[in-house]
Nucleic acid binder design. Structure first.
Lengths: 200, 200
DNA sequence: CCTTTTCTGTAGTGGTCGGTACATATTGAG
DNA sequence: CTCAATATGTACCGACCACTACAGAAAAGG
């Protein structure tokens, strides 16, 4: 098994580096030259390992969602209440979007607004991941309602879109340079609003 | 006066077309070839009239803010209360971001997430316009507080960032294809939250 | 050993990018 | 009319894009 010359680089490490680069610069503004330079891998090796720029991005985005975006997602699902879940989702995302030494903002939001419509593979990937996020939120609200938890609204779909939009807004502001403390203050306001709508 | 061969196209109309194109495709994904083709103007004439791609974008963004973004801005300032101002700001922006036959989303938000950091002129322009938006919101809240209007929070800066983020979230969702009615439902939720926080 | 398979480095491919040199055309000034 | 000034169309610039042809290197199977 494993005939032929062995690969001279760590595929997972290369994917991790590609993820960081796409996260930092966005999809369109990250060139193959940038990748080959930062990863120390010549382009033929890159193409042999990942296929194309868009396929590499999709794999990098998978890694982003599994490792980085995983924490907020898990926090939403694992919290005992929808309120605690949404609060944790927002706070974990703020931490993720403003991590010291890490790229700012959200890899997916940035790609959504910067990838050319002609790159259908990436556009479809991003659309799918957005639907998954909304579904996760919606089902969390449905479960909470079934458990008798008071919610800001009975319209779970609108709730899901509203709180997903909060995350997107945080991502845009983080990229604009808003400090972590400022983002957390608006998260506090969002949760104050939740309480005001549920305890009245 | 006005020596030399006269310009053979309407500069304002060309600027309007450029604005629509930048709005539709973003900054980076709108090429000079796209512009020359859609405007019917060869590139030397374009450069003679506007200087460079980034200068053309800044002029187009000025036009966007004056004509299109002007309505939401005026709505915020002109409303009798901060609450009515914020509600009008959000609803006017939803209308703007989902206008039939027009580009979706916000020209500025899209450019913020898609313009390469190397294009400092555009980056600085976008940063300035963001600060102006926040200032407009902040001073509206300050005026409301001085007039005795109850607000969701005494921290006017956080309020400004929160409601500006609402607009950005709406812009991202509009670009993702969210229908106008769905955006308006989340605006209703946002204003329900305002009322819950001010009337408790 | 030799062959097959796979990867690597060099050196490109055609295409598009933002921007421009240049000759020509069209105006007002004198 | 002549001249200076400005705009136009053609045709091009070097730089960069995503991507790849090709020859040689490094492994396993025989």
């Amino acid at each position: 098994m494993a005939r032929g010359r062995p690969r001279s680089f760590d595929r997972d490490a290369a994917l991790d580096g590609a993820m960081r680069l796409f996260w930092t610069r966005g999809y369109q503004d990250t060139s193959i030259s940038d990748l080959t330079e930062h990863l120390g891998i010549a382009s033929p090796s890159l193409y042999a390992a990942f296929g194309s720029k868009s396929a590499l991005f999709c794999e990098a985005a998978d890694l982003y969602q599994a490792r980085e975006g995983g924490r907020p997602g898990v926090a939403l699902a694992a919290a005992p209440t929808a309120r605690a879940g949404v609060a944790a989702l927002l706070r974990e995302n703020v931490a993720l979007f403003t991590r010291r030494g890490g790229p700012r903002g959200c890899l997916l939001t940035r790609a959504t607004l910067s990838c050319p419509p002609s790159d259908t593979a990436v556009v479809e990937y991003l659309d799918r991941s957005r639907r998954d996020r909304l579904t996760a939120l919606r089902s969390r609200f449905r479960a909470a309602a079934a458990a008798g938890e008071p919610l800001p609204s009975d319209d779970h779909d609108t709730l899901a879109q509203h709180y997903d939009a909060q995350v997107q807004g945080l991502a845009v502001r983080a990229l604009e340079g808003a400090p972590r403390a400022a983002l957390l203050r608006t998260v506090d306001l969002t949760m104050t609003a939740w309480d005001a709508m549920t305890t009245r």
